[in-house]
Simulated assay, not measured.
Amino acid sequence: MKSFHSFIEKLTVALHQPLPGEKAHQIMQNSSQTRLNFKPNEQTRRSAVFILFYPFENEIYLPLILRPSYDGVHSAQIAFPGGRFEPTDESLIQTALRETNEEIGIKIEDVNVIGTMTELFIGPSNFKVLPVIGYLPYKPNFIGDKKEVETILETKLHDLSDPNIIGSSEMMIRDEKVIVPHYEIYHHKIWGATAKMISELLFILK
């Protein structure tokens, strides 16, 4: 697919230019974050997620996952596959690849990593998260980990790029009513750190 390879070439170049970072993140920042004043500390943990592009039927796709409901800050949220850095990982890129393999069953040996975006700090869970970007030259056969993944959303980049999916809603976060910007796609709302990553990705693609 010639257009897919052209897309990957342009994205690779863009990822090695200065990144928009905070400018893009601010667009999807909720109304409480300026007041809560979370900051990294010596207990802050490192993690990574993977943004995986692949071609299918002349479209460019990337997978998102719906986390299961559980007693935690990221319960039932839409996210990119990923997780925490383990001592056995050589790098955060390896963390992203390992976790993506574990959560959605992609073959690590077939993945081409092309770059990273701006690391984010997630205050409520005290994590720093590095978004890693890469691609597969084919549509993978996804296998979701039943403990980690409720649903895999195979998402068209074209749909994610539609400005009409941006909105906001009122949510209760830590017993506080908060106005939260989100992307709404396939009847799911994407907010928080994942929305900030998408915002930066769309800035880069522009």
Rank of each mutant, 00 (worst) to 15 (best):
R45D: 05
R45M: 11
R46K: 09
R46I: 04
S47C: 10
S47G: 14
S47T: 02
A48M: 03
A48L: 11
V49S: 07
V49D: 03
V49Q: 06
F50S: 03
F50N: 03
F50L: 15
F50C: 06
F50M: 08
I51Q: 04
I51D: 00
I51H: 00
I51T: 10
L52V: 01
Y54M: 06
Y54P: 03
Y54Q: 13
Y54G: 05
P55Q: 10
P55N: 13
P55Y: 15
F56M: 05
F56N: 07
F56G: 07
E57A: 12
E57I: 10
E57N: 12
E57P: 03
N58K: 12
N58E: 09
N58H: 12
E59F: 03
I60K: 05
I60W: 05
I60L: 04
I60F: 07
I60C: 13
Y61F: 13
Y61D: 06
L62H: 02
L62M: 11
L62P: 00
L62K: 00
L62C: 09
L62V: 02
L62F: 15
L64W: 03
L64M: 09
L64I: 15
L64R: 03
I65M: 14
I65D: 00
I65W: 00
I65E: 00
L66D: 07
L66N: 13
L66C: 10
L66G: 15
R67Q: 15
R67D: 12
P68Y: 04
P68H: 14
P68D: 05
S69Y: 14
S69N: 11
S69P: 08
S69G: 09
S69Q: 10
Y70P: 11
Y70M: 12
Y70N: 13
Y70S: 09
G72P: 06
G72V: 15
G72Q: 11
V73L: 10
V73H: 08
V73Y: 14
H74S: 13
S75M: 12
S75P: 08
S75L: 14
S75K: 10
A76E: 05
A76M: 14
A76Y: 09
Q77L: 14
I78Y: 09
I78H: 04
A79G: 07
A79R: 14
F80L: 05
F80Y: 14
P81A: 07
P81Q: 03
G82Y: 02
G82R: 01
G82L: 04
G82A: 14
G82H: 04
G83W: 01
G83R: 08
R84Y: 12
F85E: 06
F85L: 06
F85P: 01
F85K: 05
E86Q: 07
E86M: 12
P87W: 10
P87A: 09
T88F: 05
T88M: 10
T88R: 08
T88V: 08
T88S: 14
T88A: 12
D89S: 11
D89Q: 04
E90G: 02
E90M: 03
E90D: 09
E90W: 02
E90V: 04
S91L: 00
S91H: 08
S91M: 08
S91R: 09
S91N: 07
S91A: 02
S91Y: 00
L92Q: 13
L92E: 09
L92Y: 10
I93F: 03
I93S: 08
I93R: 01
Q94G: 04
Q94F: 06
Q94R: 11
T95K: 07
T95Y: 01
A96S: 13
A96V: 00
A96P: 00
L97S: 08
L97C: 10
L97F: 01
L97I: 02
L97A: 06
R98S: 05
